[in-house]
Simulated scan of single mutants.
Amino acid sequence: MKKLILALIAGAAALSASAQTTSPKAYVGVGVNFADRNYASPAGATNLDDDGYRASGKIFGGYEFDNMWGMEAGYTDFRKSNSSYTLNGTRSSVSNDGHAWYLAAKATAPVNDQFNVFGKLGVTQVKYNQGLVSDDKTGAYAALGAEYKVNQNVSFTAEYERYGKSNDFGPKPNTWTLAAKYSF
């Protein structure tokens, strides 16, 4: 029994050591982010017309301490979007713009040599503008995703991100992102 326990401990140590063999790497990336632009219409409004899902840009960079742990920071521009509706016979329109910064810890689980899954958890600063009204909030940032490595430097990612809590206006905080990443 003692030999089995020692063998299990030695095996776990060997696996842990092999998982840590990658040297630390810095990386940068660009992505396309899709946020939902469907608005809640005012009570009694009809003929609601909004932008739905709309693409925007994202840039990010980070540092991988080893195969499992890292840090990432990024900026997402939610772009300008428009919505219009009819209320009491009068046609009205609303437009807004927004962006977000985030800083997050990143945990990665390798599936095989080319494919990883990851999760990120951190803090975000989100700003939305609608005409003369502005909303600036700090909240929790979280993401789940997958990464496909083309080679040791280039990879593609797909992830679901959450930028804080829902706002009264502007894009929803839930986004889908497709990105390219370069490690050096």
Rank of each mutant, 00 (worst) to 15 (best):
I9S: 15
A12K: 00
A13G: 11
S16M: 05
T22S: 09
S23C: 10
Y27F: 14
Y27M: 00
V28G: 12
D36T: 10
N38I: 03
P42V: 09
P42E: 04
L48P: 07
L48H: 02
L48R: 13
D51E: 13
R54A: 10
A55C: 06
I59T: 14
F60H: 11
F60G: 10
F60I: 09
E64N: 15
N67Y: 00
W69D: 01
W69I: 07
W69E: 00
G70V: 04
A73H: 01
Y75D: 08
R79V: 12
S81T: 13
N82I: 03
Y85F: 14
T86R: 12
T86D: 12
T86P: 02
N88V: 04
N88M: 14
G89Y: 01
S93K: 11
N96A: 09
N96L: 13
N96K: 03
N96F: 12
W101S: 11
Y102L: 12
L103F: 12
A104R: 03
T108W: 01
P110D: 03
V111T: 01
Q114A: 08
F115T: 03
F115N: 04
N116H: 04
G119P: 06
K120F: 02
G122R: 03
V123F: 04
T124Y: 05
K127T: 11
N129D: 14
Q130V: 13
L132G: 06
V133P: 07
S134R: 05
T138Q: 05
T138L: 11
A140H: 08
A146T: 09
A146P: 08
E147D: 13
E147K: 06
Y148V: 00
K149L: 12
V150S: 08
N153A: 09
N153T: 01
V154R: 09
S155W: 05
F156H: 05
T157M: 14
E159V: 05
E161V: 10
R162L: 12
S166R: 15
S166I: 09
D168N: 13
F169H: 02
F169L: 10
G170H: 05
K172F: 01
P173E: 10
T175K: 02
W176A: 15
T177M: 00
L178Q: 07
S183A: 15
F184T: 10
